[in-house]
Design a protein around this nucleic acid. Structure first.
Length: 350
DNA sequence: GAAATAGATGTCGTCGGTCA
DNA sequence: TGACCGACGACATCTATTTC
C-alpha cells in the first residue's frame, strides 16, 4: 500500500483520556487541552501556530493548531498544551469540543504524535467505537506517553499510520492538487507539497512507463503499427507524451487517486489540444495508490471543450495585456467527464 | 514500608480584549 | 458599558521517586 504520511523520528505518541475541562464540559474556563511532556519536543515553547491533522472516525481535516507550554514563575516551561485559538471555529481544540458536545456522556481519548513533516496529528477516539477497541489492544495503559522503548509502540504506530493514510484521502488529494498548481496555502506544509511534487513526478513517470508497456502489447497484437515515447530518456517539453502511428497525440495524465480527480493542463497543452487538425487524447492512468489496482481510461473528443477554454484564455490574456500586465503561466484544472465526449471503458494496467 | 520530596498534570480566578 | 470569551499562570492535586 502507498504511504503518504509517515511518523517522525521523535518516535513518541501520547495517549490521554480527556478530562471534562479538556472537552470544555466543566464549569472551568479552560480553553486548552493539556498534553504530556515528551511529545512534540521539536516545537518551540510559546506561540507556535501550526496546522494539525485531526482524525475522528472517518473524519479527517487539516485545522489550525495553536501550541505552547505553561511557563513557570522562574521562566522555564513545562506542560505542553494546544489552545482553542482566536479563530475558534477552525482549530483542533474547537473541533474536538464540537464532537464531544454531541455525546458528553461518552469517554473521549486523544492520541497525538508528530509526522515526518513535523505536522501535528491528533486522533480523537470515543470509548464506544471500533477504533477504541483496536487501539486498546495495543495501548493497554491510558494517560501516558509511549516511546520506541515500549513494546507496544511499533504496533500502535502501525495502526496510527494505517488509520491516517486511510482516512486522509481527501487531504492527500488536496496536497496532490496543491503540488500541481503551486498552491502554497498554509494548511499544507511546504515539505508535504515538495514531497507531493516529487511523488507526482515519479507517478507521472510510472504512468508513462505503464502506457509504454501497454502500447508495446498493442503493437505486438497488431492493434497499432508503431508508437513513439517522447520522454523515454529525457523530458521533451512537448505538450504530449506519445505519438501513435505518427498521427495520434497522447498525453498521459496519472493520479494516485480516482479517475474523477481534476486533470491539470498547462496553457501549452490547451493551445495544442485546441487545434482542429490535431488528433489529441488523454490516457488517464488512475488508482496508482495501490500497485496492483492501476487502471486506464482513454479519453477522446475534448476539442470542443478545450477550444472554448482556449478562446476564453486568449480573451483574458488580451484583457491583461491591455492593462499592460502579463500572464506568465497558467494551470487549468478540468473534470474529465466535463471535458471529454468519449471516455472509454476502464482497462486494467497493473 | 512510610514519609518526604519532586515532578507532572488539572483546575479555575483574574485579566484583558472584543463586540453588541 | 457590560457581557462574554480566551489566555495566563498560580495553586491544587495526583503520582513517582527518593530517603530513612
Amino acid at each position: 500500500m502507498f504511504i503518504f504520511f509517515k511518523f517522525n523520528k521523535e518516535k513518541r505518541l501520547g495517549f490521554k483520556k480527556l478530562t471534562e475541562a479538556d472537552l470544555g464540559l466543566s464549569t472551568s474556563h479552560q480553553t486548552h487541552i493539556g498534553l504530556y511532556e515528551g511529545v512534540f519536543t521539536f516545537l518551540q515553547n510559546s506561540d507556535v501556530v501550526k496546522s494539525g491533522i485531526l482524525i475522528y472516525n472517518d473524519y479527517c481535516e487539516v485545522l489550525d493548531c495553536s501550541f505552547d507550554r505553561i511557563q513557570n514563575p522562574d521562566g522555564s516551561f513545562r506542560s505542553p498544551k494546544i489552545k482553542i485559538g482566536s479563530d475558534s471555529n477552525n482549530s483542533i481544540v474547537a473541533k474536538i469540543r464540537e464532537f464531544a458536545k454531541v455525546s458528553p456522556k461518552s469517554k473521549w481519548y486523544l492520541i497525538w504524535s508528530g509526522l515526518e513533516s513535523e505536522e501535528l496529528t491528533f486522533w480523537l477516539i470515543r470509548s464506544d467505537s471500533e477504533d477504541y477497541n483496536v487501539i486498546r489492544e495495543v495501548l493497554p495503559y491510558e494517560n501516558r506517553v509511549y516511546g520506541e522503548e515500549d513494546s507496544y509502540y511499533d504496533k500502535a504506530i502501525e495502526i496510527l499510520t494505517q488509520k491516517i493514510n486511510n482516512v486522509s484521502i481527501s487531504v492527500q488529494k488536496g496536497i496532490e492538487v496543491a503540488s500541481q498548481i503551486g498552491d502554497k496555502s498554509k494548511l499544507f506544509k511546504k515539505v508535504d507539497i515538495e514531497r507531493a511534487e516529487a511523488m507526482f513526478r515519479s507517478v507521472g513517470k510510472r504512468g508513462e512507463e505503464l502506457i509504454a508497456e501497454y502500447l508495446e502489447k498493442q503493437k505486438q497484437a497488431n492493434n497499432i503499427q508503431s508508437f513513439d515515447w517522447l520522454n523515454k530518456s529525457m523530458e521533451s517539453g512537448a505538450p504530449y507524451d506519445f505519438i501513435i502511428d505518427n498521427k495520434n497525440y497522447v498525453d498521459v495524465k496519472s493520479t494516485l487517486y480516482d479517475f474523477n480527480q481534476y486533470i491539470y493542463f498547462s496553457n501549452q497543452e490547451i493551445s495544442f489540444a485546441s487545434k482542429k487538425d490535431v488528433d489529441y487524447c488523454v490516457f488517464r492512468v488512475y488508482g496508482m495508490k495501490e500497485e496492483n489496482d492501476i487502471w486506464l481510461k482513454k479519453c477522446y473528443q475534448c476539442n470542443p471543450y478545450i477550444s472554448t477554454m482556449n478562446s476564453n484564455i486568449t480573451n483574458f490574456m488580451n484583457e491583461v495585456n491591455v492593462q499592460k500586465a502579463m500572464l506568465q503561466s497558467l494551470k487549468l484544472g478540468i473534470l474529465p467527464e466535463n471535458c471529454f465526449n468519449d471516455i472509454q471503458s476502464a482497462i486494467k494496467l497493473g
